[in-house]
Write a protein that binds this DNA or RNA. Structure first.
Lengths: 333, 333
DNA sequence: TATTTAATAGTAAACGTTTACAATAAGGGA
DNA sequence: TCCCTTATTGTAAACGTTTACTATTAAATA
């Protein structure tokens, strides 16, 4: 049905090896026969079969991208960075949402290996890398992104979460805030932990009083969660004068809770987020936050992966690049 | 290097055809030999080669998804719908961002056909479907989404844009607004046109005065564009008491421009958007808008495509499903 | 016991490429 | 004129599966 190299060969009166060579601009085919072959291929509407090619070349020019949820505004930018960089080098990407489920993530890894992707970029749903995981990751080039410990056995690109937390804390304290609160996403998330750690370091360095344990809370990464937690906090007497949220979605929920309580941001309570998602910059929100270089992260991860793929024979040294966070001052702090 | 069906056959002392049958749970292999084979496969860490399988079965269990830009908050939900539905039926998706460029879109279509995707879901960058496009789309199952005219030669799933525009207009007029404005994304976009058309219909039906031509403006779909256009409008004396934006991003920019001018929403100017992106629901924004069933749209598009793929021999009737828009009343109108 | 049938396993071709190697023809140098 | 290169093309194997067809064996039937 679909036209193959053999159909072209027949019509051109040459062997199909010659057709293959002609179509791939290989050295060693007469320029007039090549021309002839190219014309025939074009008029026959030939489309090379990348599957067949992949089988013999053992390379698919395809990489897998597994993220928790493309619907979370952090990930589209990352994905776009990955795609743009990959496309530049001729690679396509399989997009997979693990839905924050480790089991689904594992199934996807397995599937992608079956599909013989040339490499894998993984924004893991959980910070825990098991021995089995390592074993699987050793089967192909892998780079991990965001919220991954070093020594995970793969390449990785992350933002300096500790520094980001530190910057946020330092800024709030310099602005005269004394009663700090930390509201985080999942407590067992590695990046949340690190952001908290950096924040605490700033408090230790620059603040005489310690953080009230009641003012550090965890939930999930969603908007609603920030709202709920902040509301709880406000209903008690122990009200902070600044809160650092482990991500912007949370911070936006927090903003809303504060507004609903009739308090003013930043006068009564300052709020700083993390990630600098697009919505943080919207006029109605104007959230002060920490820039997380999302697009760049995707680009770098893809770049690193493609390097790994190309240098297959080389030692698979597990490079780790750490991106700089940056304070973005807007209205809320 | 990697273990194949032959390696397993050798170790099990059977032919590789038997191994294939065993691994695929085909009828006709003794249950004890099957058990034996499965164990060997497992201990050898066998991963079936989907590329080789795809070559003989002429099916890759892969579909292509081309959207303009995953970074636009409208698309992640669509993509998620597509992915969830596809995954359920065992299909993976290639994600491609056309970046609103027809040429890039075309290149991706070509590439995906080379990769032998079983079908294609396309959120086109432009509403124009050329004869060449049709020719290409005839090579494989295709369904188009969002902003596509009927008779595009493929299946399609869209929202009823005209009705959406109408609902928005009707609501504003019922609220007593008289001086309506329409601010749209790209003027040549089919969906923008339809939303405008519906809005005008409402004006004709329920309003005695006609819309001032000065109050209908076009830009692009971005936040900044809404801000800029609204600012221009406000600088003239001809200030509307309600504006309908062709999408939420635009509306959020408009909100900001109004606020900056010291006017109040909705008291001075009511604003309604379109799409109901997540950010529209944020407490700080609370945009009144028209729900665009994004996730559902992705699901339906994928479902329709997979049906087409399965019923390959059937007549390729180009079904069109039209989703209902819905008014979401929040703070801004 | 002879014959049919069912269950199981093996053989080989096919999917559409790429590529190592062989074959041919033409040109050049001795 | 003969041999050696070089340019061009062809042959065939390989990539890792699936599957139609054939062969073998054992059980069941007459």
């Amino acid at each position: 049905m679909t036209v193959t190299i053999k159909d072209i060969a027949e019509k051109a009166g040459v062997s199909y090896a010659t057709v293959s060579r002609a179509l791939n601009y290989k050295y060693g085919v007469n320029s007039t026969t090549r021309q002839h072959i190219l014309e025939i291929a074009s008029t026959m509407n030939y489309s090379p079969n990348a599957i067949a090619r992949g089988l013999v070349k053992k390379q698919t020019y395809t990489i897998g991208l597994i993220i928790p949820d493309i619907t979370n505004p952090f990930f589209p930018e990352v994905a776009r960075g990955v795609e743009d960089m990959s496309e530049k080098q001729g690679y396509s990407i399989f997009l997979c949402n693990s839905n924050w489920e480790k089991s689904k993530e594992n199934r996807y890894v397995k599937l992608l290996i079956e599909k013989r992707v040339d490499g894998l970029i993984l924004a893991p749903s959980s910070s825990i890398v098991t021995a089995e995981d390592r074993q699987v990751y050793s089967r192909l080039p892998v780079v991990m992104m965001s919220g991954v410990q070093s020594g995970c056995g793969t390449g990785s690109v992350v933002v300096d979460n500790i520094k980001g937390g530190f910057i946020a804390g330092k800024y709030l304290i310099e602005k005269g805030r004394k009663k700090l609160s930390f509201i985080g996403g999942a407590e067992d998330s590695f990046s949340v932990k690190e952001r908290y750690e950096g924040f605490m370091q700033a408090a230790e360095c620059f603040l005489s009083v310690a953080l009230s344990p009641d003012l550090v809370r965890f939930g999930d990464y969603r908007n609603k969660s920030g709202y709920r937690i902040m509301k709880e906090l406000l209903e008690k007497k122990n009200i902070p004068d600044a809160v650092f949220a482990s991500n912007d979605l949370l911070a936006i929920g927090i903003l809303q809770a504060i507004k609903d309580a009739g308090l003013k941001v930043p006068e009564d309570i300052a709020v700083v987020g993390f990630d600098n998602i697009a919505a943080a910059g919207f006029g109605e929100v104007e959230l002060t936050t920490i820039e997380h270089p999302k697009y760049r992260m995707g680009e770098l991860a893809a770049g690193m992966l493609l390097d790994k793929i190309d240098l297959k024979p080389e030692i698979n040294e597990n490079e780790r690049v750490v991106l700089e966070p940056e304070l973005i001052i807007r209205r809320t702090a």
